[in-house]
């Protein structure tokens, strides 16, 4: 007797969101009408994309392991971005404007704009611009960048429940994409999307950041909230069907399990491979939970995740082999 394996059909699907415009080579994510990676029963017009993170300043707390691939390029975002796109194969770049944070030098919005311009000149891939974190400074920096590079379809990271109006306004005015962030909470994720659509953002220009917990550090919460957001979207919820972005690198490369050397903990094995494994395991689990944009720090991690995705989507992005 043969198995009657019915493909699971859903009333809803994920929104398609195009990252990058103008001088960028645009990249669209989303569009799937089934559970993440369930290519055997659903259609996925676009595959998940992978970004590498570059920084405006020499990041004070990065481990040597993750500094090494960027030797001489840390704090030179344009050069780093070029290497990320051309040599390391990043689908897009995340420029982390960490140096604009008051505790890390407090670079001005105009200085930030210069960095953005340099990166935009250096590469053609879409660009995610991450501000210094919620607050007035974040708005000043990202609003400035958004206005100056209008039409480039930048991905602005990020707006949240308490503070979204400024970035929403510049997203609308200057043709960008906005990341809506929520603290591992489906209801808040939905609420932020509602608030954004309420201020006239077309949700085709929104990505959800459900807040990433790294492996061993809350991954299970992120994983489940993403699965639930995905299920709600497939169930037809128009306010939760944005593609999701996960900032994996910054969560992974600060935890004890990647910082401790093999000398200190011989059982834990080679530190460099362990760190990359940590990043790959976090990234891949979250892709399984529904991440469409994954931001990594180590190029080897990107290469390894990319290899799996390449094989997975080898027959073209739309991969319904049913």
């Amino acid at each position: 007797m043969s198995l009657k394996l019915q493909p699971k059909k859903w009333p809803g699907k994920i929104r398609e969101v195009t990252l990058g415009a103008g001088n960028r080579q645009p990249r669209t994510v989303g569009g799937g009408n089934g559970l993440p990676l369930h290519t055997f029963e659903a259609d996925f017009p676009h595959r998940p994309v992978l970004a590498l993170e570059v920084t405006d300043i020499n990041p004070p707390r990065w481990l040597d392991i993750v500094r090494e691939p960027w030797e001489g390029l840390l704090g030179k975002p344009a050069d780093a971005a070029r290497k990320a796109a051309e040599q390391y194969g990043a689908d897009l770049i995340m420029l982390n404007l960490m140096g604009t944070h008051p505790d890390r030098g407090g670079r001005s919005p105009d200085q930030a704009a210069i960095d953005v311009e340099a990166v935009l000149d250096a590469v053609r891939v879409p660009l995610i611009v991450k501000g210094p974190g919620a607050g007035a400074k974040q708005n000043d920096v990202l609003a400035r960048v958004a206005e100056k590079y209008h039409g480039e379809g930048l991905v602005l990271h990020s707006a949240c429940q308490e503070d979204y109006k400024t970035l929403a306004a510049v997203t609308v005015a200057y043709g960008h994409v906005l990341v809506s962030e929520s603290p591992i909470d489906l209801n808040i994720a939905k609420q932020v999307d509602i608030l954004l659509s309420d201020v006239n953002i077309n949700l085709d220009r929104v990505l959800i950041d459900p807040l990433t917990g790294g492996l061993g550090y809350g991954l299970e919460y992120t994983y489940s909230v993403m699965e639930r957001i995905r299920l709600a979207a497939l169930g037809g919820d128009q306010m939760l069907n944005s593609p999701m972005i996960c900032l994996v690198g910054e969560e992974v490369w600060k935890v004890k399990e990647v910082k401790v050397s093999e000398r200190q903990e011989p059982r834990w094995g080679d530190q460099e491979t362990r760190g990359i494994n940590w990043e790959v395991a976090t990234a891949w689990s979250l892709i399984e939970a529904g991440a469409e944009v994954v931001v990594l720090r180590h190029p080897d991690s990107l290469a390894r995740v990319r290899k799996i995705l390449d094989a997975w989507f080898a027959e073209g992005a739309s991969n319904n082999t049913r």
Binding site: L215, G216, E220, E257, W268, T273, N277, A281, S285
Partner: peptide, 15 residues
Amino acid sequence: AGEAWLPYWTLRQNI
């Protein structure tokens, strides 16, 4: 080796 086992165990613990 350990560099693979540690993430496996931790992932299993999370899931």
